[in-house]
Amino acid sequence: MIPGSGRDGPGGAPDRTGGVRGPGGGPRNPADGARGSAGEQPEEEAEGTAPWGAEGLHSERTLLAWIRTGTALAAGGLGGAGVAARHMGSGPAALPFVLAALCGAVLLARTHLRHRRLESALHEGKPLDVRADALLAWLGVLAVVAGAAAFVLAAP
């Protein structure tokens, strides 16, 4: 749990000692101390494990979702550009798809950086902000939709 948020997540994951931990792997009761404080380190934490417990799985699923979206954008953009160029025989028809492929490529290239920042924010209890990446992904998808609409309406 982000310190001071006052919210426990759905359920709260049981810890390995039988007690209940907050979603951040920290103590469920805020009075027990903020995450990252000296007394909060779980004594049973094994070497090489993520200190934020169950949130690690959420960030992992989110990482995979970003990879899926970036790959779909890049592949869809390239495929759409190929189809548009073959059927319509003009460069401008393929342009939105090329833009989408570029957005997908940038998103894929930023995958590691984004995930590292996310894990760092989770670890330090900072707010998560991926607005720039979200806008880039949105722009890419809007470009695909524009390209698809132009193709469908102008297809021979």
Binding site: S5, E55, A65, R68, G76, P127, L128, A137
Partner: peptide, 27 residues
């Protein structure tokens, strides 16, 4: 207040799923 990070991440994944759905429909 800053929400539970799990909710924030779930919201982010839902957003990405909408984008994937849009891409599939365009395809």
């Amino acid at each position: 207040k800053e929400p539970d990070p799990r909710f924030t991440l779930a919201n982010e994944r839902t957003f990405l799923t909408w984008l994937s759905t849009s891409l599939a429909l365009s395809a």
